[in-house]
Write a protein that binds this DNA or RNA. Sequence first.
DNA 1: TATTAGTACCATGCAACACATAGTACCATA
DNA 2: TATGGTACTATGTGTTGCATGGTACTAATA
Lengths: 110, 110
Amino acid sequence: MKIENTKAQMRKGVLEYCILLVLDGKPLYASDIIESLKAAKMIVVEGTLYPLLTRLKNDGLLAYRWEESTQGPPRKYYELTDTGRTFLGELEGSWTELVMAVDKIKSNKA
Amino acid sequence: MKIENTKAQMRKGVLEYCILLVLDGKPLYASDIIESLKAAKMIVVEGTLYPLLTRLKNDGLLAYRWEESTQGPPRKYYELTDTGRTFLGELEGSWTELVMAVDKIKSNKA
DNA sequence: TATTAGTACCATGCAACACATAGTACCATA
DNA sequence: TATGGTACTATGTGTTGCATGGTACTAATA
């Protein structure tokens, strides 16, 4: 229904920010990232995450290395590049501006 | 550049919310809406606003009436419908969830 | 009356991203 | 060899903000 669609629209641009935030610490692979986001009630599934990780890697914001697993296929561990860390700072600024703009509109009405 | 593009992506879904917020008071016409958003540092131009107002009206969230002006062409004054007011409440919830999710991710990292 | 400037509004195509779907591949186990 | 679990890949769709080019109304001026 319409609110679900609008929620998806609201996540545009923000999901990227969240992923860079989650990776601003130690390297993680996709399942870890999904769990971290889930813990924050940002529900994302693999079909959304993998293409986004690929895009961020292609944009130079993330790098990955393969790591063997004792429990299944090898895993791609992602981490921020220097470029990614810089861009994360810019996203931080953009997000803060957006939130403040919305707060200001809220407080200005009757 | 890329951050400008991401800012535009972040506004997806949020701009609709802001417009309904601004109109949750007294009826306004396009130029008033632009000024209110501008005061909150949400910069929007006519080419963005008119199509969005039309879409919201077509979705049943807004209604308008023409009003003569003493200084130029007649103006469309927009206001929320009952449906629009209800949907605004849902948007409020969605936005709050998103902001809280981002805050949680921020506070969870190292 | 005709023209011009200012103001208000409209139509449309493009770019970008979240998402869903269908698929492949690796590893452990039977 | 076959199967289940896990990890990852490829791709097309739908939606919205945006830019661009346009029309129309009104007041002022010539």
